[in-house]
Design a protein around this nucleic acid. Structure first.
Lengths: 222, 222
DNA sequence: GAACAATCTAAGCAGTGCTTACTTGCAGCT
DNA sequence: AGCTGCAAGTAAGCACTGCTTAGATTGTTC
């Protein structure tokens, strides 16, 4: 992955190169392992050069994150529009795209949801992917396959499910025994099918499960 | 949170103090902001002292994570045993405990699922919480409220859902508008009720949602 | 009470983010 | 063409952080 400059003094496309190398490093060794000096060396420039393209390390990460959200949005739209015009199917397609994106773009995904990242463009890019989910849920409600009323718990459920699966997978928490990506893909479909089919029904039992407080007066922390 | 030593040359309980201050810092400013020199200063010792209790920074984080898993397991057991002896209710209680723990112990939770952390004790602590979920799902299957057969997708679904919700909340990704912790708690119950009630049914529609490949020949990355 | 082990201090090395002062070369203008 | 201005690069160095080393201090054990 060592990238050398073509010819002269100026690199020509250093910004893009820095992003590419960063994504590669983060993918293989994590965000903490990303080091601006090594990054510059890999791009074939001196250690000060990157600062002409990114204000600081955080700005570089923010750029990676923003790019990631662009790709995620595109992937979700693509998968959604590739299935039949059915609200439940489309919601499932969005979820599948989300998990698929995360596993296929670890480098991007690992950066996209860092709370410490800020940036004007990033703040705009994040809600757009969220908006896709919201719209899909709305369609489910409009076509009657999801219960009408407050959409927030529905969106939260759907988002949490796919985000949790993606996160657990990316962080390597899931037991690796017999759980490779090939087996994960159809499992995700089953998974999302169960989830969203469940969302599409009336849930009379939900009210029964009202919050029950634990017994008071415990020693160990909650 | 500045902690001074009681009297003499030896601190007396430096290890515990270091853990406590670390958890506080991580909670308020994130893992990256944790700095061993500042940590030592806050504990009232020199910068080399912590290395007599933790091999390196990573070992310190691993200790925090391990402690977190212990607390999590305790909280899950406590909430589970506080509800009636009903498989679905108990599964819901476990999920509620999971999310509740994450929001109430950000400092621990932020460290617990870092893939780059290793340690003999940590490797043993992690699967124990997982085991609780697995057992609860098994009970659901045994009592007939969950579909028999492969338990893996069921556990994966339940875990992903609560983990995703916790992660999104912790990372501050969720829109803050009208979504404070007070409103989150009952929403979580609704959420989990929907989820696990859904898991508890036969899902004839799941097979209909088989994976459909996207159109081949795309330009942008997946 | 002397030896020993555990704990802490002081000092310093190596690596990293970022800044500053300077250099290079491309683009546009007359 | 030649001049000029600016973007993009270099080299050097400061501040901070993780970690190590050598030595000082204290509690414990025989």
């Amino acid at each position: 992955m060592r990238l050398k400059r073509k010819g002269g003094y100026h690199h020509g496309e250093l910004r893009r190169t820095l992003l590419d190398v960063s994504i590669d490093v983060i993918d293989r060794r994590g965000v903490d392992a990303l080091n601006l000096r090594e990054l510059a060396a890999r791009a074939g420039v001196s250690s000060g050069a990157p600062y002409h393209h990114f204000a600081d390390r955080e700005a570089l990460l923010a750029a990676v994150a923003e790019e990631g959200f662009g790709y995620l949005e595109a992937a979700m739209i693509r998968e959604r529009d590739a299935v039949a015009d059915d609200a439940t199917l489309r919601l499932t397609a969005l979820g599948r795209a989300y998990v698929s994106f995360a596993t296929n773009h670890r480098g991007h995904f690992r950066v996209m949801f860092r709370g410490d990242l800020h940036g004007a463009d990033l703040e705009k890019a994040r809600p757009r992917a969220f908006q896709l989910l919201r719209d899909a849920i709305h369609d489910c409600q409009r076509s009657g396959v999801a219960p009408a009323g407050d959409w927030q718990p529905l969106v939260l459920t759907a988002w949490s499910a796919v985000h949790g699966l993606a996160t657990l997978w990316i962080d390597g928490v899931l037991p690796k025994k017999g759980l490779n990506p090939e087996r994960l893909a159809p499992m995700v479909t089953t998974f999302l099918g169960r989830m969203f089919a469940a969302l599409a029904r009336k849930q009379p039992s939900a009210s029964r499960l009202s919050r029950r407080r634990a017994r008071p007066g415990k020693a160990s922390p909650e």
